[in-house]
Design a protein around this nucleic acid. Structure first.
Lengths: 122, 122
DNA sequence: CGGAATCCCTTAGGATACTG
DNA sequence: CAGTATCCTAAGGGATTCCG
């Protein structure tokens, strides 16, 4: 991350890389898919629906996505506390793009065993 | 990576997560974009066009993508050795999906400074 | 309930040197 | 030229404990 951010957009690779950064981390997609369709979830609901995740990771990924403008956080000041998470409009707009990626992944041809993809030329 | 591959596809999140794994690593996109459009590049050409990458990372990412069926490797048995890399048909098919992601990223609204996205409710 | 803080381990990845 | 091998550091991420 020694690269400074130029106003000039740089290569397409740079921009896609930046886009993928919004999705990096092992858990963001899991969280995202529980929020698609306008679903509103409490912290503890997300925690329970993704048993393998630790609170640290859950809060960390949520915070990042919130900072990125993907997730909205609503705090209800009451006891006990209640915090709800949902997607922003931009976050919802991610869905089709993920579908495109999903579609691509599904067209993956079966690999011919043994030869990988290397071609030997004499 | 402790998850076995089921014939049953699992959730959409799982499948997108798997798709993104093909692109994980700081360098794959940089490499990919130098191969899009049917370009054929030698190892040393890739190395020179991405100055910041180490040989270790270059070969590692290439090998992974080769194993994933994204990249094709052609070895010319001669001295000095010559190895060329190019995209498979499936690898080329990634381009539109990345464009979709790129398009999404570009629609990102400017964040209102200070408030992040948290909403406080009394 | 919804976090923050701390500790610790594992992994990604860089630098360098060597080989067919 | 196109890799391998080794070492080492930094970051990712889990478990646990504490707080408003």
């Amino acid at each position: 991350m020694s690269k400074s951010i130029h106003p000039v957009p740089g290569s397409a690779a740079d921009r896609v890389e930046q886009a993928l950064q919004f999705l990096e981390g092992r858990w963001k997609l899991l969280i995202l898919f529980r929020l698609f369709g306008g679903q509103v979830q409490r912290f503890s609901e997300l925690e329970r629906s993704i048993p393998a995740i630790s609170q640290k990771m859950l809060i960390q990924q949520l915070r990042q996505m919130e900072a990125d403008g993907i997730v909205r956080r609503i705090v209800h000041h009451q006891v006990p506390p209640k915090v709800e998470y949902s997607l922003t409009a931009w976050g919802q707009a991610l869905c089709p793009a993920l579908d495109a990626l999903l579609g691509w992944a599904e067209t993956r041809p079966a690999e011919k065993s043994g030869s990988a993809e290397t071609v030997e030329v004499s």
